[in-house]
């Protein structure tokens, strides 16, 4: 093969990667670097180029503020509850609609609807469902003899209400992903398990779950990152209240950037949130790497 041909063959991969790299540099790296810079300044929203360098002041102030630290805890709590809830509900739903039964197509369509519904519509519906006096939630509880709950008002219920709505909205994503994974489990494996006399639960635990585990891990990672970043459902339902009980990091970023116009502080919160997402991602890769090595050995 001539040198010319070799060179020609080497170029296309660089071109393809280069295009993606340029795109990422423009739309991801540049804003990210700008965000890093802003987090060390006192920039105001209405004068985005007028900030002055303040060193690590924004970080120092944030890390000593109870309100910020409490929002980190709220974010972790919300993320954990949402991811666990969505994984459990989504996986259970996937197992259910993977079975053959009459009306399966309809069930699949209905269960997918929350994912397809616009968040704003979901929030409006749930605002009414959670209405203290006239909402379906409290009317249902009243029928069971349980008193009125301030779903979106009581600081002890706010996070629960927001988590319930979030889980309801996102579990179909897990359901669809797990369903696809379930359908890729070779039927011979299940069949051989059955022939060996394994119980239904044993087949699920020993054959199906290991097969879909990598899919679940990826889904959990995505769900975690999305939950850390989720804004619209929380903001529209509670605005971060009551009493800051649903005040997550992104709500904080929004409030600092757009209500208080403190772009520098908002960027610092964003960077700390990014660190949180990075930690989750690193943990995922460590766990995934260990699993891969275990399977290989």
């Amino acid at each position: 093969m001539s040198t010319m041909v070799k060179v020609r063959r080497r170029i296309p991969p660089y071109l393809f990667v280069g295009a993606a790299a340029v795109y990422l540099a423009i739309f991801t790296a540049t804003p990210l670097l700008r965000g890093v810079w802003l987090s060390f300044t006192d920039t105001k929203l209405l004068n985005p180029d007028g900030g002055t360098f303040v060193g690590a002041d924004n970080y120092r102030n944030l890390l000593t503020e109870d309100r910020f630290l409490s929002s980190v805890v709220t974010t972790l709590l919300y993320t954990t509850l949402t991811v666990v809830g969505a994984l459990v509900l989504g996986t259970a739903a996937a197992f259910a609609i993977n079975e053959r039964f009459r009306g399966r197509a309809v069930a699949r369509a209905v269960l997918t609807m929350p994912w397809a519904a616009p968040s704003i519509a979901v929030v409006l519906v749930y605002t009414w469902i959670f209405n203290v006096e006239d909402g379906v939630a409290n009317r249902s509880l009243a029928a069971l003899g349980i008193g009125q709950q301030g779903w979106l008002l009581d600081p002890d219920r706010g996070l629960l209400a927001v988590t319930l709505v979030s889980v309801w909205k996102v579990f179909p994503f897990i359901m669809l992903v797990v369903l696809a994974a379930l359908q890729s489990v070779p039927s011979e494996l299940r069949e051989s398990g059955r022939i060996d006399g394994a119980a239904r639960l044993t087949i699920v635990r020993e054959i199906v779950l290991p097969h879909i585990a990598p899919t679940l891990r990826v889904a959990a990672l995505l769900m975690t990152i999305w939950s850390i970043r989720r804004f619209e459902i929380i903001f529209l339902l509670t605005g971060g209240g009551p009493v800051d009980s649903t005040n997550t990091l992104v709500i904080n970023v929004y409030r600092e950037a757009f209500q208080n116009s403190e772009l520098g502080r908002a960027a610092a919160i964003g960077m700390l949130g990014l660190c949180l997402s990075l930690v989750v991602t690193v943990v995922y890769f460590v766990v995934d790497g260990r699993s891969a090595r275990k399977e290989a050995s």
Partner: peptide, 18 residues
């Protein structure tokens, strides 16, 4: 005002709800 507003209203929420 926007930052003070949030502080005051959050404490008033605590009066109402807690």
């Amino acid at each position: 005002t926007p930052r003070i507003r949030h502080i005051v209203l959050t404490w008033i929420e605590k009066v109402l709800l807690q």
